[in-house]
Design a protein around this nucleic acid. Structure first.
Length: 422
RNA sequence: GUGAGAAUAGCUCAGCUGGUAGAGCACAGGAUUGUGGUUCCUGGGGCCGCGGGUUCGAAUCCCGUUUCUCACCCCA
């Protein structure tokens, strides 16, 4: 094999695709009910769209972006996440005439990482953004959406984590206190976290290193140092969630990997997923991002879920996608190529109303019937020597083990009645 | 970017300390010259991931490489 798909990518077809499409369909219907509209943005953007919004110091920007130069030497990047592109589009198209603007998107995302189960270089996300409101009800709605999305897919034991990272003001005060606390304990932290101390101290909360964890646990939490407004904002959200009977855990060490988050952050994780990648989705508020992109200084919040991990967990837990009710189906078997003129007419007739395929290659009737049964067809229609000569067609009901031969000229109505099940 | 394991038929895998490539399932043909689960018989299929090395001889040992898997890192 000379050519294979690039590292960290894969082809989606059959069962895999059925799961993904099921997740997409379910979310679209949910977004519709919450009054969100779809937006499609480019799969690549100018590199600065991501580097400036996600943050120069983040891992994603530092080492995970698929960046390239086009023929005019512009630096472009395949999107590593959806929010930056959506915000860029909102600002560029001045879509903020009527706020809040509620949008959803779906699409493939790209991050240059070492692939493993549940983490591919190309992966698929579904997300939503609500731009132009800082009402805690909007935060509630976002969390409500992500929660309902998973429960409608059939999940029961997922964990919803929420936290507040504070606004610019309370974060500034807090950072001073946090760094003052940590500066005496720098020795105990891992080399990586020592770097973080300078560049992005909050990420220390994310470190899996035991020693760092201990320090992080003991250190002051931002959620305990919120300003009055932020505190009340967060309080309101938890009250709302309780009213909605959505269960959650407040996780004081939940901080997320993008710099643009302010105030509310949340994440849905599974404690059952058989891999290290347990985050199925997450999001948060980004009140400064629209302004950063040159738009008005308006608040916003959003989330995204990964369909691949979601599908993985569904399969692991035995949650099946419900198939939409399909049309009745006929497998049309012609015993000889010379019947093709008749075959074409019948195909046209059946395909007006039913799922219908024919045997292009095979010719043994018994294997054709077996094949039709295995592939879940309702009927087999047979054209053989006799039928062709007399312009007849034999139709077999696979489940009832019954068959009948009809005249093509005079009994079309009977054929239809049989196939429709009347 | 760091560390570990794997790659053999369409799929799941066996193949011993080097000696001509195997099974099950699937597919195809037949027993049944045009009729369905089961059974039986028969058959097609493989650059043993790719490249190099050691050897009289490599699927097997060594090196490189690509991809996959797992754990870090990080995230969806």
């Amino acid at each position: 094999m000379v050519l294979n798909s690039p590292r960290g990518t894969s082809d989606f077809y059959g069962k895999e695709l059925e799961y993904r499409n099921f997740i997409i369909e379910k979310s679209k219907r949910l977004f519709e009910r919450f009054s969100y509209q779809q937006i499609v943005t480019p799969a690549f953007e100018h590199t600065e769209v991501f580097s400036r919004s996600i943050g120069e110091a983040t891992d994603i920007v530092q080492k995970e972006m698929y960046s390239f130069r086009d023929k005019k030497q512009r630096s472009l990047t395949l999107r590593p996440e959806g929010t930056a592109g959506v915000v860029r589009a909102v600002v560029e198209n001045k879509m903020y005439a009527d706020l809040p603007l509620k949008l959803f998107y779906e699409g493939n995302m790209f991050r240059y990482e070492r692939p493993q189960k549940g983490r591919m270089r190309e992966f698929f996300q579904i997300g939503a953004e609500a731009i132009g409101s800082d009402d805690p009800l909007m935060d509630t709605e976002m969390i409500w959406l992500i929660n309902d999305l998973f429960s409608e897919l059939g999940f029961k034991d997922l964990v919803l984590l929420i936290n507040s990272m504070g606004c610019e003001e309370c974060r500034k005060d807090y950072m001073e206190e946090f760094k003052a606390y940590l500066v005496q304990r720098l020795e105990k932290l891992c080399p990586e976290c020592k770097k973080r101390y300078d560049q992005n101290p909050l990420r220390i909360f994310d470190c899996k290193n035991q020693a760092c964890r201990v320090e992080a646990e003991a250190s002051p939490k931002i959620s305990e140092h919120l300003c009055k407004q932020c505190y009340q904002h967060f309080e309101k959200i938890t009250q709302n969630l309780n009213l909605l009977a959505i269960s959650f855990e407040v996780d004081h060490s939940l901080v997320r990997g993008f710099d643009y988050y302010t105030r509310t952050v949340f994440e849905v994780i599974s404690r059952q997923l058989e891999s290290a990648q347990n985050a199925l989705g997450g999001g948060g508020r980004y009140d400064k991002l629209v302004g950063q992109f040159g738009g008005p200084d308006i608040p916003a919040i959003g989330f995204a879920i990964g369909t691949d991990r979601t599908s993985l967990l569904m399969q692991q837990l035995g949650i099946k996608p419900l198939r939409p009710k399909r049309a009745r189906s006929v497998y049309l078997v012609s015993m000889d190529q010379k019947f093709s003129s008749f075959l074409v007419k019948l195909l046209k007739f059946f395909r007006k109303e039913f799922k219908c395929d024919t045997n292009f290659n095979k010719k043994n009737l018994s294997t054709e019937i077996k094949w039709a049964e295995k592939n879940d067809y309702d009927f087999v229609a047979i054209i053989g020597e006799e039928e062709f000569k007399n312009l007849m067609v034999t139709i077999k009901d696979i489940r009832k083990f019954k068959q009948h031969t009809f005249s093509w000229e005079n009994e079309k109505d009977k054929i239809l009645a049989l196939l429709r099940g009347n």
